[in-house]
């Protein structure tokens, strides 16, 4: 697999605040890569540095063979960015906005017109070309933001919290557009998010906290490693069950009418169930979610 982005010991401080304290990771071409972390973890700072906007204090960033700080214009041609806050002009129409930004990549005439049409078609905004950007709904605006990022047909698309502030339905909509882009056009997507569902759809997740990498892996690996699984048992006779558990030195927690037992792998539940089989009224095994993994990694509740 080709590594389209490669980051080595990246650091950035603002005066006394150490925003990014040495990051190492890479992004594979054609994958959906999620950068996950609580607010203020250094996600946006890292994206800003990869996108040539901020200069790193130290470290090296390679993007498709070009080094940030040396071939910035080359990198800028290869990337598309959807910023956290909207950066288009509310008073101009969708077509004008995307056309103006397209012209900054040296596109003009027929070529530019086609690029604008294509980008807007991908996000399904062709019916709104003549509407002022400021008069669109939040979800429509986000789509235009994505169209703007696509106008130079980038190799990699960066999205900084693309669905923050959208209602659940619109969020799903925008999210589908993003994952279609990745699957159908084989585009590399690099996104930051603090929504767990989105991270669990990614091919690879890097969790950062306090400017450092706290964990990385596929969503399944992270869940496996950091999210505990639980066995819940509703006993026929509670005391007898507790006795059996104590005898076997199994840790448990008493809930109102259930006993919960943390287990490493879901199959571990079979062994325990065997020992207490006669005493079970009902049971269930719950696999850890990305939420649990996140809390397991950062020790913090994720903000919803």
């Amino acid at each position: 697999m080709n590594k389209i982005v490669q980051v080595t010991s990246l650091k950035k401080s603002y005066k006394d605040v150490h925003a990014v304290k040495g990051l190492d990771f890479y992004v594979e071409e054609g994958k959906l890569f999620a950068f996950l972390g609580p607010n203020g973890a250094g996600k946006s700072t890292t994206i800003d540095m990869i996108c040539t906007y901020l200069r790193p204090d130290s470290g090296k960033i390679l993007l498709d063979g070009s080094e940030v700080g040396k071939n910035d214009d080359e990198i800028r041609r290869k990337i598309g960015i959807v910023f956290q806050d909207s950066v288009l002009d509310p008073i101009l129409t969708v077509r004008e906005n995307v056309t103006i930004r397209g012209s900054m990549y040296g596109l003009h005439g027929k070529e530019l017109k086609e690029a604008v049409e294509n980008a807007c078609e991908v996000v399904g905004m062709t019916d709104f070309m003549k509407r002022p950007y400021g008069k669109l709904s939040g979800g429509q605006r986000r789509r235009v933001d994505i169209a703007r990022a696509l106008v130079n047909t980038p190799k990699i698309l960066f999205l900084d919290e693309p669905t923050t502030g959208l209602d659940p339905q619109t969020r799903v909509n925008v999210w589908n557009t993003i994952s279609d882009l990745q699957k159908q056009n084989n585009m590399t997507i690099f996104l930051t998010t603090h929504y767990m569902e989105e991270a669990s759809d990614a091919d690879y997740v890097v969790v950062i906290d306090d400017g450092k990498i706290a964990a990385k892996g596929t969503p399944a690996q992270l869940k496996e490693k950091y999210a505990g699984n639980y066995l819940y048992i509703v006993p026929k006779n509670k005391d007898s069950l507790l006795n059996t558990l104590k005898k076997n030195k199994i840790t448990y927690k008493q809930n109102i009418d259930t006993i919960s037992i943390p287990i490493v792998h879901t199959v571990d539940s079979l062994e325990i169930l065997d020992k207490v089989r006669e005493n079970i009224d009902s049971f269930e095994v719950i696999k850890g979610t990305m939420d649990d993994a996140f809390i397991g990694i950062t020790g913090k509740e994720i903000r919803r």
């Binding site: 996108c51 040539t52 906007y53 214009d73 080359e74 800028r76 041609r77 990337i79 960015i81 910023f83 806050d85 950066v87 288009l88 002009d89 930004r101 900054m104 990549y105 040296g106 703007r148």
Partner: peptide
């Protein structure tokens, strides 16, 4: 103020 220039600075211009 609106950080629109961020978009320009990340473009090859």
């Amino acid at each position: 103020e609106k950080k629109i220039y961020k978009d320009f600075y990340c473009s090859p211009i």
